[in-house]
């Protein structure tokens, strides 16, 4: 009897955990399939589910249910393109720069290794607001504020140390003998790295690339700082157009919901790929990925 009662308690707790985890997300999903009137008359399920909000978001229908909102969808579309470009640039350049560095820090016997790690990771402990203002001026002076390049560079200032750190741990955990025996067989260091080590490191490298992509896609603060109001603004930045300062004043909550759902679904799909590597990679900086 005790065991049945225990089972019931566990099922109940599991149900609580599920409701806790999905109800805030569910709300946005269901709102994105309603029209504003249905949403405001407090429906919990879409009474007439339709994808008009998504069609409006991507410009297939040009008027909104609440009337015309000028330029809003165009901005969001532009943001989506910019975010895709930036995320791919950030991912590619970060990986190209951090694979050699991660290898060197994780595998080579280096003098001053601790100092190098410290210098590389030191900037990661800075709270974003402390670097915001200097970045703003610095990027203005260099004429890269409000450009795709500017957004890419500012995001890489986070992804490069983070991914270098993850790869460092990953490379140092790979078996030593393989590289050694490749060197014995007459491979140069580079050949040994490419032929013996790289295939083993492939899952870690793939997961790191996903981390870089996810950071870039999810980043709001830095890209907002650099790209707000410019033609280079990212998807997340473009969504601030929907934020009224006062509660209840979003210009069109259902399109807003649809836009956030698009943002979140991409992130969830990409994070799903990452999920099975989380514990094996020992990512000790989850917040950065979560930002």
């Amino acid at each position: 009897m005790v065991s049945t009662r225990r089972k019931c308690t566990l099922y109940f707790l599991a149900l609580v955990a599920v409701v806790w985890s999905i109800s805030p997300v569910y709300e946005m999903f269901s709102a994105s399939f309603m029209n504003p009137k249905e949403l405001i008359s407090h429906n919990l399920f879409p009474p007439t589910p339709n994808i008009n909000n998504y069609l409006r978001l991507f410009g297939f229908i040009t008027t909104t249910a609440g009337g015309q909102i000028f330029g809003l969808t165009a901005q969001v579309d532009e943001g989506l393109t910019n975010s895709a470009i930036v995320a791919i640039l950030v991912m590619t350049i970060t990986m190209a720069a951090t694979i050699p560095a991660g290898y060197a820090l994780g595998r080579l016997r280096l003098r001053g290794r601790t100092a190098m790690v410290g210098l590389l990771l030191g900037s990661r402990t800075l709270p974003p607001v402390s670097v915001a203002l200097p970045y703003y001026f610095y990027f203005t002076a260099l004429h890269i504020r409000g450009t795709i390049i500017g957004v890419t560079i500012i995001q890489m200032s986070i992804t490069i140390p983070l991914v270098a750190w993850v790869l460092m741990g990953f490379f140092s955990a790979l078996p030593r003998d393989i590289e050694m025996s490749a060197r014995m067989d007459g491979c140069t260091r580079f050949q040994a790295f490419r032929r013996a080590l790289l295939p083993l490191a492939a899952p870690g490298i793939a997961a790191s690339a996903v981390i870089a992509f996810l950071f870039s896609w999810n980043d709001f603060f830095y890209s907002w700082l650099i790209s707000s109001g410019s033609p280079a603004q990212t998807f997340n930045t473009s969504l601030t157009a929907f934020l009224g300062q006062a509660s209840g004043s979003a210009p069109d909550p259902t399109i807003f919901a649809a836009a956030v759902v698009v943002q979140v679904v991409v992130a969830i799909v990409v994070a799903g790929i990452l999920q099975k590597y989380i514990t094996s990679l020992k990512i000790i900086d989850p917040g950065t990925v979560a930002q």
């Binding site: 805030p24 896609w217 999810n218």
Partner: peptide, 8 residues
């Protein structure tokens, strides 16, 4: 919930 960015 972890898959959502702080902004989302």
């Amino acid at each position: 919930p972890w898959a959502l960015s702080e902004f989302a």
